[in-house]
């Protein structure tokens, strides 16, 4: 269980380091929370004018959002170094991981947690969940609870996998910031809404290229069964958590192949 000890010590260090700047951390976390909430409030107010979008009412939309925020809170506490990987390479901080007798991805994942983003997004995620889950008629029983947890884990793995792939690309290209912002951030923005509102192209992207649809849309359908599900294969709901596992494995393999390039180029 050596890994668990590293994880505990690293998390302790990330939190303790932030606690050196208590006020700063608090203010920054609140700022993240407010910034993200402001987006949600704008959307919320706009939605009030409509009864529903493609059959989804406001509370159901908030439930959809809550999954995005909750998974992101976990993603940044694990994958912070991979999100900011090109900077790590540029500053030469990757070398030190290579001289330690542990897996590279393991070290990157356990190393740093983005405490501020995690607290900001996590608080909003929990709040949205509490506001919406009770009003959308979810019946919680062992099966639904288990599915929900699997969906969250799958969502975390999917997003972590995307960060890993973007990181691995920085072994080939100098600047990968724009790739990441298109493949992660822009796709994530689309994923705030039911994918059925988009044209074919965007739907395809969200399902088969950067499969955010399996992070929140299909898992939400498990609970809500909105009529627009008729347009998709029913099985997608059940394989949603597995899509995350699949993307993560793919990312892992791509990383393994790409990291070899580092040994030859240095940076």
């Amino acid at each position: 269980m050596g890994e668990l000890r590293i994880a505990v010590q690293s998390l302790k260090m990330s939190v303790q380091a932030r606690m050196q700047y208590r006020v700063d951390t608090l203010v920054a976390s609140i700022a993240v929370f407010v910034r993200e909430s402001a987006n949600i409030i704008v959307i919320y107010l706009a939605l009030l004018k409509f009864d529903a979008i493609n059959g989804w009412n406001v509370n159901e939309m908030l439930f959809l959002f809550s999954i995005l925020f909750l998974t992101y809170a976990v993603v940044v506490s694990l994958f912070a170094d991979l999100r900011d990987f090109s900077r790590m390479i540029r500053e030469g901080r990757f070398d030190r991981l290579l001289v330690r007798p542990r897996g590279l991805l393991l070290q990157l994942i356990l190393n740093n947690a983005d405490v501020i983003a995690s607290v900001g997004h996590g608080t909003l995620g929990i709040l949205l969940f509490l506001l919406s889950a009770g009003r959308v008629g979810i019946e919680w029983n062992p099966v639904t609870i288990l599915y929900y947890l699997c969906a969250i884990i799958g969502g975390v793995l999917m997003q972590g996998g995307i960060f890993i792939i973007c990181s691995a690309l920085s072994f080939y290209f100098v600047e990968t910031g724009s790739i990441r912002s298109i493949f992660y951030w822009d796709m994530r923005r689309f994923a705030g809404y039911p994918i059925s509102i988009y044209n074919k192209l965007i739907q395809t992207l969200l399902m088969y290229v950067v499969p955010f649809a399996f992070v929140n849309y299909f898992p939400a359908q498990f609970f809500l069964r909105k009529p627009d599900m008729a347009g998709y294969n029913e099985a997608y709901i059940y394989i949603a958590p597995l899509v995350g596992v699949f993307v993560y494995l793919l990312a892992y393999l791509f990383w393994r192949v790409s990291v070899r390039r580092y040994y030859s180029t240095g940076n």
């Binding site: 050596g2 590293i6 010590q9 303790q16 700047y21 070398d95 007798p101």
Partner: peptide, 20 residues
């Protein structure tokens, strides 16, 4: 290039090495 955690006392970085 330091491998120490900038914001914490040395002992915390040492503990991490112990586990790694």
């Amino acid at each position: 290039k330091s491998q120490l955690n900038w914001d914490l006392p040395l002992i915390e970085s040492f503990e991490l090495m112990k586990f790694i």
